Amino acid sequence: MGTVGAWLPDKKGRLTSVIVGFDTIEGLAKQTSYYGAIVGRYANRIAKGKFTLEGEKYSLPINNGPNSLHGGKANFSYKVWDAKQIDEQTVVLETLSEHTEEGYPGNLQVKVTYTLTENNEITITYEATTDRTTVVNLTNHAYFNLNGEGNGDILYHVVQINASHYTPIDSTLIPTGEIAPVKGTPFDFINPERIGKRINNDHPQLKFAKGYDHNFVLNRHGAHLPVASVTGDITGIKLEVFTDQPGLQFYTGNFTPGTNLTRGNVKDTMRTAFAMETQHFPDSPNKPNFPSTVLKPGEVYNTQTTYKFSV
């Protein structure tokens, strides 16, 4: 039984699998690197698994060094969602995250809609409501190799990110709270650049994350302009990312263990895939200067991200 992926023609018309997946559901269930998962209730990291909301202190499971990552140990990536196919191009997933689940307040009702368009786009729409004040930050954690999954590293892929600033991290990968300019640093992707050109530079931020695993503060865009693009150097396949979110986590697979056997019995070795996770900023509940991730009763969390492919 195959698992979900995306197959596209490259510049020579050859069908190419660009999203890393698994040959079996069992393989997908065993892995711990969030391949293709919806992650939440809070995507990315919260420092020491603690935050205070409306004067009340909350504690979350610690599952990434001293911090809580992607919603905790039993996060959304482990849920069995209720699925409904609307038509040939649309699937809706729904779940209830109960009050105090993984330490978070409020019964959170979540709906995620995947739509495949006629323009080679995958659009993901996230909606959530709560019955008490909580924090929410949802994303998708697909891993891409635009030269074809299992076809070597991604260091010669060319990346452009429309972000003049990023959020530096400490040694545990938690943002320091600073919003720093990318100019003059290895994080400047305003102009297209190879992923591998500066990834091994002697820069403390790169050493902390063993490469890129950082939140980029996106410049404001119109509805039809991409916030980022990546092009495979061998296939010519191009991925463009569109989102209404303020941040983008660019992750170069620095911590993939090399023990998961992905589709075709290929080991997921370091830097053989990348992720572009649209999001609010990591640790926002503890950083008042970051955009708020608070959701209150009566409000609707609603956000949309589109991944568009072309050659």
Results as ranks from 00 to 15, higher is better:
residue 5 G to P: 08
residue 11 K to R: 15
residue 14 R to T: 13
residue 21 G to D: 13
residue 25 I to T: 15
residue 26 E to M: 00
residue 29 A to Q: 13
residue 31 Q to D: 08
residue 33 S to P: 03
residue 37 A to I: 12
residue 38 I to D: 05
residue 41 R to D: 14
residue 41 R to E: 12
residue 42 Y to F: 15
residue 43 A to S: 15
residue 44 N to T: 05
residue 48 K to G: 09
residue 50 K to A: 14
residue 57 K to F: 00
residue 57 K to Y: 00
residue 65 G to C: 06
residue 68 S to C: 15
residue 71 G to A: 00
residue 75 N to M: 02
residue 75 N to H: 07
residue 99 H to E: 05
residue 101 E to T: 04
residue 110 V to Q: 02
residue 111 K to D: 04
residue 112 V to S: 11
residue 125 T to C: 09
residue 129 T to I: 14
residue 137 N to E: 15
residue 138 L to N: 07
residue 139 T to G: 06
residue 140 N to P: 01
residue 141 H to D: 02
residue 149 E to A: 01
residue 152 G to K: 00
residue 154 I to C: 07
residue 154 I to E: 03
residue 155 L to Q: 10
residue 161 I to W: 12
residue 161 I to S: 08
residue 162 N to S: 05
residue 170 D to G: 10
residue 172 T to L: 01
residue 179 I to Y: 00
residue 180 A to L: 01
residue 182 V to N: 02
residue 182 V to C: 09
residue 191 N to D: 12
residue 192 P to M: 06
residue 194 R to T: 14
residue 196 G to H: 09
residue 196 G to S: 06
residue 199 I to H: 10
residue 201 N to Y: 13
residue 210 K to Y: 11
residue 211 G to C: 10
residue 211 G to T: 08
residue 226 P to N: 03
residue 227 V to Q: 13
residue 229 S to C: 14
residue 229 S to Q: 12
residue 233 D to W: 10
residue 237 I to F: 06
residue 249 Q to M: 14
residue 250 F to A: 05
residue 256 T to K: 05
residue 263 R to W: 14
residue 264 G to S: 01
residue 265 N to V: 05
residue 266 V to P: 01
residue 268 D to A: 02
residue 269 T to C: 09
residue 274 F to E: 06
residue 279 Q to D: 09
residue 281 F to W: 02
residue 281 F to N: 04
residue 290 F to T: 02
residue 294 V to T: 14
residue 300 V to M: 15
